[in-house]
Amino acid sequence: MDHTDRRNIELSLIIPAYNESAIILRNVEEIEQWMGQHQPDIDYEIVVIDDGSTDAMGQLIDERAKTDPRLKTLHHNGNRGRGRAIRSGFENSAGRYVICLDADLSYGPDHIPALLEPLKTGAADITLASAYHPAGSVSNVPFSRALLSRWGNRVLSVGLRGKFHTVTCVVRGFTRDVLDHLELINDGKDLHLEIIQKAELFGLRVVEIPAHLKWRDRDRGRKRKTRIVDYIPFLSMSGTIASHLSYNYVLRPGSILNIPVVGLLAATLIGVLTIIYAFGERLINLPGGLGPTKLYQALRETLINGELTLLLTGGALVVSMVFIAFYFASQQNKKNYEELYTLLNRINIRLRELQEKKNR
């Protein structure tokens, strides 16, 4: 990314937005007023990415940008996803530090200093706003949605070795050096997980900042509920949940496969012990002394009478072996992916260095 043609901006505030015409101008103004009052010495820009809005939001923000030198707008031809909008913001911003905010300001502008300070002092390469941090808080969010989000983040955190409390929040801070060297590809909300995964792969310092998530009591530009599933948080978020779980599996295959493997092996063990117990009981109850004929008869009766148990036990064992093989194959794929990504990223860095030398 070439930022040499722009003025020396310290901070870029990135806002991905889709159909937020009801609130976008008001929130941009709120950010600018807050920055003027609390961060007057920071040279900053606001980059709003219109992700293919159909409610004239793009025109509104373009009109304001004509008289607002701090405001820059980008437009996607269609709705390409939150991840792609954020990446467009990264690519078209100029600040030495970048903070991504949500369009509805559910995390208010007062989070900016806390996200920015660790980046400026060198204590962090990436900062995460975390409402589910022990010192964080949530208010004015429907209970069912907040509960689903909190537990969803706990599950996803397992794929990241449980180091973070909130991994899906859009509100984050970055140094420019990190953004220039991380190769990001996700267009959807999985970008949030991809960033943490790749940051950890390169040993970058990722710091969680306790945050306050608050839905505001005003028109937030939400989508209208037109289907029954829109009224049920789990169903309305099913696509996002499935996508995140799939990515969680990529991050750490064992986090999903451990449960079925352990369960199937436990079922196999119980089945085997049941068959052994039944065999021993028949062996004791059959008349005559112990010999090959008695052993054969006891085994035959055990297998005939326990046909269903034997079938279930064998099936559980076979399926568990399939899962175990799949687990090791997935671990190898993960290792190969990380090695390939690391190699390609180093090649890209070297190419940039050579290009910079050539341009001097």
Results as ranks from 00 to 15, higher is better:
residue 254 G to C: 10
residue 43 D to W: 03
residue 127 T to R: 03
residue 152 G to P: 04
residue 222 R to C: 02
residue 239 G to N: 11
residue 168 T to C: 10
residue 240 T to P: 01
residue 338 E to Q: 14
residue 160 L to D: 11
residue 246 S to I: 03
residue 239 G to F: 13
residue 179 L to N: 08
residue 86 I to P: 00
residue 212 H to W: 08
residue 109 P to Q: 04
residue 305 N to G: 04
residue 348 N to M: 09
residue 104 D to N: 04
residue 176 R to E: 08
residue 207 V to A: 04
residue 337 Y to L: 11
residue 127 T to H: 08
residue 79 N to M: 01
residue 147 L to Y: 13
residue 331 Q to C: 12
residue 206 V to E: 05
residue 204 L to Q: 05
residue 234 F to N: 01
residue 11 L to S: 05
residue 299 L to M: 12
residue 54 T to Y: 00
residue 37 Q to P: 00
residue 103 A to M: 07
residue 193 L to W: 09
residue 341 Y to W: 11
residue 175 T to L: 09
residue 189 K to H: 14
residue 239 G to V: 11
residue 196 I to C: 02
residue 210 P to H: 12
residue 280 G to I: 09
residue 216 R to F: 05
residue 15 I to T: 00
residue 79 N to T: 01
residue 73 T to H: 06
residue 237 M to Q: 14
residue 232 I to E: 07
residue 164 F to I: 10
residue 178 V to K: 06
residue 155 V to P: 02
residue 16 P to S: 02
residue 190 D to P: 00
residue 341 Y to I: 14
residue 204 L to R: 10
residue 54 T to F: 05
residue 93 S to P: 06
residue 103 A to F: 00
residue 100 C to F: 00
residue 14 I to L: 06
residue 251 L to N: 15
residue 286 L to H: 07
residue 53 S to F: 05
residue 251 L to F: 06
residue 174 F to V: 02
residue 28 V to A: 03
residue 278 A to M: 11
residue 325 A to H: 07
residue 328 F to D: 08
residue 98 V to T: 13
residue 258 N to S: 12
residue 58 G to C: 03
residue 95 G to V: 03
residue 269 L to C: 11
residue 141 V to F: 10
residue 22 A to G: 01
residue 177 D to R: 14
residue 151 W to L: 10
residue 331 Q to P: 00
